[in-house]
């Protein structure tokens, strides 16, 4: 076996080619890394701009009154925590009452949404019945209807029932699956569950209700969780319905109470107003922090708001 000159040349050429390829790869990697770093810098700048208003709100809630406007710094020269304690009692009724009211409305609404929407979604996704596609199309159409269109007749209806100034107009519709978004979200999820489960359970003599309760619900906890978090946040922030149905300040929810601060604007209570604004956002931020994954997946799969 002898090594010819051409073989040697070939080997050298191949080595050279490998070297060039390696260099190219290095160059590409370097370019990609630089690109990544640039991207990170850009994204961090955007993040700061996005978050600045929120930090400004937080900072202003702690600043002395004369520092709120006229300075961009977020760090207060002295911390005025009393904005929070004073703000809590700044309105004729303390915020304890508003928070309890909001909590009652929110909890009842979330329960109502979960029960009624999962019922409807189970029927649409898992049961065969006459008129299914017709009703499903109707349900999808209601998603489009602006709340303002049904508002006036609903108001007249609830007024005649004597429900104005109670929480019933806010809560009862949720027990009647008024928010089709959640039905849609759950239908999407229920459909993915294997059909064989229902069939096997049916053969074992399970009733549809048993299947819903013992099979579908336990397997659908992520979807139920997503729906619960979204409805919690939306009901908590809801403004229009409480604005219309609640007239007595004792029954106000937190957003209505915050609006009262605006009427007192100019009485130099900005710090207190911001403090109460911050507090009203805290539950939302906490729930977002805890259930971020569920929220993100929920939007990506259903395309909600």
């Amino acid at each position: 076996m002898k090594t010819s000159a051409t073989d040697l040349e070939l080997a050298i050429q191949m080595d050279e080619a490998a070297r060039v390829a390696h260099e190219l790869r290095l160059k590409r990697d370097r370019r990609e890394r630089n690109g990544r770093i640039l991207k990170h810098i850009f994204l961090i700048v955007v993040s700061c701009v996005m978050l600045y208003p929120l930090f400004w709100l937080l900072a202003s809630s702690l600043k002395p009154e004369n520092e709120i406007f006229g300075s961009l710094t977020l760090w207060p020269s002295e911390f005025h925590f009393e904005n929070y304690t004073k703000g809590w009692y700044a309105l004729p009724i303390s915020f304890t009452v508003f928070y309890v009211n909001s909590a009652i409305v929110t909890i009842l609404s979330v329960i109502g949404n979960l029960i009624s929407c999962s019922f409807a979604a189970y029927a649409f996704a898992r049961l065969n019945f006459t008129g299914r596609s017709f009703f499903f199309a109707l349900m999808m159409m209601t998603l489009m209807i602006p709340y303002h269109v049904v508002l006036i007749p609903q108001y007249v209806q609830f007024l005649n029932l004597g429900w104005v100034d109670t929480y019933l107009p806010l809560v009862v519709p949720r027990f009647l699956a008024s928010d089709g978004f959640f039905i849609f979200l759950m239908v999407q999820f229920f459909r993915q569950l294997p059909r064989e489960l229902d069939e096997a359970a049916m053969i074992d003599g399970c009733s549809p209700f048993k299947i819903y309760w013992a099979i579908i619900l336990p397997l659908s906890l992520p979807a139920m969780g997503t729906a619960a978090i979204f409805s919690l946040i939306w009901v908590w922030e809801d403004f229009l319905a409480p604005l219309i149905y609640l007239n007595d300040i004792k029954s106000y929810t937190v957003p209505l109470a915050l609006r009262l601060f605006l009427d007192q604007e100019g009485q130099s209570a900005y710090g207190q107003m911001f403090a109460m604004s911050v507090l009203s956002l805290v539950p939302v931020v906490i729930f977002f922090g805890l259930f971020q994954k569920l929220i993100v997946r929920g939007i990506a799969t259903s395309g909600m708001k």
Binding site: A123, M139, L176, A177
Partner: peptide, 21 residues
């Protein structure tokens, strides 16, 4: 069975959506 499950939504649809519209 299906209509039992659908009942809350059906009531809601007639009383809170179709009727008001």
């Amino acid at each position: 069975p299906a209509y039992v499950f659908l009942l809350p939504w059906l009531i809601g649809f007639f009383l809170l959506a179709l009727g008001p519209i």
